[in-house]
């Protein structure tokens, strides 16, 4: 796939994100959508790339957390612009429930993961950030998804993830559990060997491969 996101478009979007200019960001995304850009291209080469960069700027103390929050908030709103295209796709009889574990407030990545499920014709049910374990268990019991996706962005929430996976594994022994998020850059991947049927997706490509595996 040849990306429609040129370096110029990317730089301009990132600059507007850092400046907190929601209007300019919306205009750019709307223009790309009216040019029938592939949603994957938009997610991967614009939203994800820009937010990874901004995350690094925050980690290296080049920008404040307030600037990072504002950029995240704007990007979340950009996803809303994509939804009329995203949800109109034909559906397969497959579903995934995606959530951030308790105390995890970074929801952009996990919301994008839910959208990737939709893009692949799955029903991507998104529970949002800071999902209490009891609520998660009830929802999984109601929806009976093919995949449960759990996301963490901050490493100190890793313990919550382990606890969540442990309980979910006990309550729903056969459920395919997907884990991912920026926190795994700091470790924690051994969760996939500690529990059965727990899989780690490092990025969109991994995620789509796992989705295809589950379809077959």
């Amino acid at each position: 796939m040849v990306s429609k996101i040129s370096e110029e478009i990317f730089t301009s979007f990132q600059k507007d994100l850092l400046a907190g200019d929601r209007r300019q960001c919306s205009m750019l995304v709307e223009k790309l959508l009216s040019g029938k850009i592939d949603v994957r291209d938009l997610y991967l080469n614009l939203f994800q790339r820009a937010m990874y960069n901004i995350g690094r700027l925050w980690e290296y103390n080049k920008i404040s957390v307030a600037v990072e929050h504002l950029a995240t908030s704007i990007t979340l709103q950009m996803l809303n612009l994509v939804y009329p295209v995203l949800f109109s796709a034909e559906k397969k009889n497959k579903s995934a429930v995606i959530a951030c574990v308790a105390n995890e407030y970074h929801q952009l990545g996990s919301q994008m993961v839910s959208d990737i499920f939709e893009l692949n014709g799955w029903n991507g049910y998104y529970l949002g950030s800071n999902t209490p374990l009891d609520d998660l268990l009830k929802y999984v019991d109601t929806k009976k998804p093919d995949i449960l996706g759990l996301s963490i962005a901050i490493y100190f929430n890793m313990q919550n993830l382990w606890k969540t996976v442990e309980v979910v594994r006990r309550e729903f022994p056969g459920l395919f559990i997907l884990v991912g998020g920026q926190a795994f850059l700091w470790g924690g991947r051994e969760i996939t060997t500690e529990f059965s049927d727990v899989h780690y997706a490092a990025g969109f490509e991994d995620l789509e491969n796992l989705i295809r595996q589950q379809e077959n």
Binding site: H69, S73, L76, Q77, L79, N80, Y83, P84, L86, F87, S88, Y105, Q107, Q111, S114, E118, Y126, L127, G128, S129, N130
Partner: peptide, 24 residues
């Protein structure tokens, strides 16, 4: 700050849900 982030997150989750239900 936490409240604002939660509100913003909830708003986005609800908007997504609304779009999804609207499409259905």
């Amino acid at each position: 700050r936490k409240e604002i982030i939660e509100l913003n997150n909830n708003l986005n989750s609800l908007t997504r849900q609304l779009h999804k239900q609207n499409s259905e």
